[in-house]
Amino acid sequence: MRPFTYERATDLAAAVKAVAENPGARFLAGGTNLLDLMKLDIEQPTHLVDVNRLPLSAIEDTVEGGLRIGAMVTNSHLAADARVRARYSVLTQSIVSGGSGQLRNKATTGGNLLQRTRCAYFYDTSKPCNKRHPGSGCSALEGLNRNSAIFGASEACIATHPSDMAVALTALDAQVETVTPQGATRTLAVADLHRLPGDTPHIETNLAPGELIAAVILPPAAAGGQVYQKARDRASYAGGLASVAVVGTKVAFGAVAHKPWRAEKAEAALAAGASAVEAAHAELAGARDNGKNGFKIALVARMTVAALDEAKQGRGA
């Protein structure tokens, strides 16, 4: 691992300033993804600002009847929270389907959102990758693309976002509260946090350099059942090939795009009275594959129908 300097932040504004003013600096939260990527020489920060001890570890009720989740709340504590289990069960379902017990005990809410793709070529430093080296090319386009995107991809990048939690948050219309380098607080929808790859797949979010996620805000959940379904190669502790989150008639997909994919066409079809099958096909009609990932199109369609049916029967309501 390359050398770096380390500081433990005790003040939120100072932490944001320390990262905003130093192009080589990164925030360190749970570290389960960042430190792994540093060992592999994919991430090369020169300075780490450890934000674990900032006062961002509370889950609080909001006046609107939702929840405000501090960015440093661990995945385990969030999944186990009684309010989350009772009112946002899709969030618990999604979190416990990701990683292992050990990882969920360390990984944080903010860090989970900002984890990076598991594309094999992003991890293989001997191969071109536009995320690691902008302009070097995308090895996945004609390579091992079984787990690549089927929505919103570009000629520059067909990587997917690996988070399960973010898919549930998207279906729940959650918002992210950040602190900007200027010290202001701003909120944006989780659905608007990540970007599609376009020509700049190395720019993955709409956060400014140094902007810190302070909290995730859940509005009161939409009525109806809540279901998270995940398909993968092993029964446990494996990344998703595809996942579907349903909250009433809100639908989001995971592991199929550069960001959690809000299935707006499916939602519009459902609102217009379409069946689950018709709604799934309305969304999947826009899917494109690169050869080895074509199976995801039929898979996501079937998972969507199953998840909508389960939600309709009241699971997770």
Binding site: L28, L35, D36, D50, S100, Q102, K106
Partner: peptide, 27 residues
């Protein structure tokens, strides 16, 4: 594995299990 994939490094920190390989001691 030294990458959080095998669990051989599991220890308890403040009573909770984590992968000791995926954490900096200074944290």
């Amino acid at each position: 594995c030294d990458h959080g994939q095998c669990g051989a490094c599991t220890v308890l920190v403040n009573g909770e299990r984590i992968n000791a390989c995926l954490s900096l001691a200074v944290m």
